[in-house]
Computed example of a mutant assay.
Amino acid sequence: MSLLIQEVSGIDAPMELLLLADPSEDKIRSYLSGSTCFVASSGAVVVGACVVQSRGTDTYELMSIAVHPDHQKSGYGTALLQWVIDFFRNVGARQLEVGTGTFGYQLAFYQRHGFRVTSIDYDFFVNNYPEPIFEDGIQLFDMLRLTLRYSSNGA
């Protein structure tokens, strides 16, 4: 698997991919301008994208990460997330944060990479989205906040 990951401007962010991770284009646009967007390509095909926002001098938040459905379960999401983890470790980040639903493959995905639950944002999905969001037929209500803390020995 050959994967090229590079930063792109918010204008060039692949909105159709980002909408797979966050169903609100308005919300994506609201955080895209103040964030860094990375795209992952295999050959000439963009297979994934993610958006990361600074939360202070040494804390960053992964706002969204998505892989095109035709390329899911191929290791691209894992490679992209690991690249982001390494990138922010190398720029001196103290921690990387992410918010996700309270169940499903996304939660396990982040936990496999060392993220740990640090808080719960109750009713986040019902208070911040006009339409209910369902995952595997179950409505999402609360957001789990997860944190990956870097250590000097390479967390």
Rank of each mutant, 00 (worst) to 15 (best):
F115C: 06
I85W: 11
V47I: 05
G137I: 01
T36F: 12
E16M: 01
H68K: 02
E61W: 12
R112S: 11
I11T: 14
F109Y: 05
G10T: 09
G77E: 02
N128G: 06
Y76M: 12
M143K: 15
L80M: 15
E16P: 03
S24C: 00
D136W: 00
I138L: 09
L19C: 04
T100R: 07
V98K: 03
K73L: 15
A155I: 05
L20W: 13
R145A: 00
G48Q: 00
V91S: 08
V46G: 04
S9T: 14
T102S: 15
V126Y: 01
A93R: 06
G154T: 08
Y150Q: 01
C37Q: 09
Q106W: 04
G154M: 06
L4P: 02
G34P: 00
S54W: 12
S74N: 13
Y60M: 03
S2W: 09
Q111E: 13
W83K: 04
R55F: 13
D26I: 14
I85H: 07
R89W: 01
G43D: 04
F125M: 07
L140V: 03
T147C: 11
S64R: 08
A21K: 10
L140R: 09
S152M: 11
F38N: 05
I5R: 03
G154V: 02
R112V: 07
I85Q: 09
L148G: 01
E135H: 04
A44H: 12
R116E: 14
I120P: 08
G114E: 10
V46S: 08
V8M: 09
L140F: 00
P132E: 11
G77L: 11
V98W: 04
A13Q: 10
S9H: 06
R94A: 04
C37E: 09
V51Q: 03
L80A: 10
S74M: 15
S9V: 06
L18F: 08
V117P: 00
E131V: 01
V8D: 10
N153G: 07
G75R: 01
V98D: 04
L20G: 01
G101R: 01
D86V: 14
G114V: 11
G114Q: 11
Q6T: 15
F88V: 04
A93T: 00
I65H: 06
I138K: 15
G10L: 11
G77Y: 09
F38S: 10
V46W: 04
F124Q: 09
L144R: 07
E25K: 13
Y76R: 02
Q95P: 01
Y150R: 06
T100F: 08
C37G: 10
D22I: 05
S30G: 03
G56E: 09
L17A: 03
V51A: 04
G92D: 00
K27G: 00
C37W: 13
I85K: 14
L20P: 02
S33V: 10
I138S: 05
L107S: 02
L18K: 07
R145K: 12
G101Y: 01
F38Q: 04
E131R: 12
A93C: 02
I28G: 02
L3W: 08
G99A: 12
L62T: 13
P14R: 09
G75Q: 07
F115A: 10
S119P: 03
L140Y: 01
T36G: 08
Y150V: 03
S119T: 07
V8I: 14
L146H: 02
I65K: 07
S151R: 09
I120A: 09
E25L: 01
H68Y: 13
H71D: 14
A49V: 10
Y110S: 07
N127W: 06
R94N: 00
L107N: 06
L62F: 11
K73W: 14
